[in-house]
Design a protein around this nucleic acid. Structure first.
Lengths: 209, 209
DNA sequence: GTCTATAAATGGATAGAC
DNA sequence: GTCTATCCATTTATAGAC
């Protein structure tokens, strides 16, 4: 066992300074955008001195990049990659609920705001988030829809377009109002109703053609 | 003619300092978020001194509020309130194209980013933008859909939900990627195809029930 | 690695002359 | 109203002791 492995194993029980810093930065960057959060505030939240922060990260931008990478990993898209068998209604409903529930989490809305706020300053941030989040959902859906179309002999000229339409259809009622802060998180029954409706609309059209 | 009217008429030809300041602030706040833009930068862009800026606006927040109010007015939703007659396909296509074209404008995407970035610090900003933009589109659509359902004797249990689903369906393929900066503005044919597809999906479902 | 103290720069906001 | 010059708080980042 190398020294590095030993350090990694200990980490879970007693978090290293580096982990304390990243956790504190995560928390703060979710409450406000890049420029609002100072290195002083991060150091204070982590319970370390500012010099310690700079000993682990070259500068603020490097810390921000590390934090964003970690948050994208943790919130990596809907976890439905396994369970794609069964009647299409059920599968789309499962995928739709997974996506909707992801979007409902306050942390995800906050992350979304932070990413969008930072994308002008840090263009790579947008690409990273897309690949880890919505882009992954799109690929998953497009693959499933392609298979579905083949099985049921449906027309599916552009699976990527269809996937984004489905995502828009289920997220439309909630995403914008939540991002703008003009409504609270929806109730379970509200989510169920919206997803059921969206699945019905989507499938009805597919089978009509 | 009052003195104020005279000033207003002159304004178009030779803009007042106040208008110079607001224009400069508009331009800058569209390129980056609230905290990134300094009063020094705004004064420099307007070609006036910083003290002059403060003689017209009490502080930075007041200037930001004024700028956002002006931008919301200028970009006030899709201008389709008159032309709601004709076959549903055509009407929905017109509305869909109007909404999509609005969203494609780089200024609107930038405004969107700025609003979302600022909504944590200034909650009223989100409400204002919603009312001037997406909220207005939702009301317009919901009203039209209610009428349509009545005329064609279709089921329309929740016009607001349906309106947001339609907006999500047409904006889904573009809005997220544009906000995240992972794609360029779509071509005209791409927009046409997406809107036609969305209208077909939406209407097919309505008439199926 | 970690701390205290501080440097160097920039931010919002104001005083005072004109 | 408008400008120049300045105040004061805060920010990023570093130096030097331990």
């Amino acid at each position: 066992m190398t020294a590095q492995n030993a350090q990694t194993e200990i980490a879970a029980a007693s978090p290293s300074k580096q982990e304390l810093i990243v956790s504190a930065a995560c928390k703060l960057f979710l409450t406000a955008s890049y420029d609002v959060i100072s290195m002083d505030a991060i150091a204070a939240e982590a319970g370390v001195s500012k010099a310690t922060v700079y000993s682990h990260f070259q500068n603020k931008e490097a810390l921000f990049a590390g934090v964003m990478h970690k948050m994208c990993e943790e919130s990596s898209g809907p976890q439905v990659s396994d369970d794609l068998a069964g009647p299409p209604e059920a599968v789309l409903r499962t995928i739709g609920l997974a996506i909707t529930h992801k979007l409902m989490e306050p942390e995800i809305i906050s992350l979304f705001r932070t990413v969008i706020a930072g994308v002008t300053q840090f263009p790579e941030l947008g690409r990273t988030y897309w690949q880890e989040g919505p882009g992954r959902a799109r690929e998953l859906l497009a693959t499933y829809l392609t298979d579905l179309a083949q099985q049921e002999e449906l027309a599916m000229p552009d699976p990527h377009l269809a996937a984004m339409q489905f995502i828009g259809l289920i997220s439309g009622p909630f995403l914008l109002p939540l991002l703008l802060g003009v409504r609270d998180a929806p109730t379970q029954s509200e989510v169920d109703r919206a997803v059921d409706s969206a699945v019905a609309i989507f499938l009805a059209n597919l089978r009509l053609k």
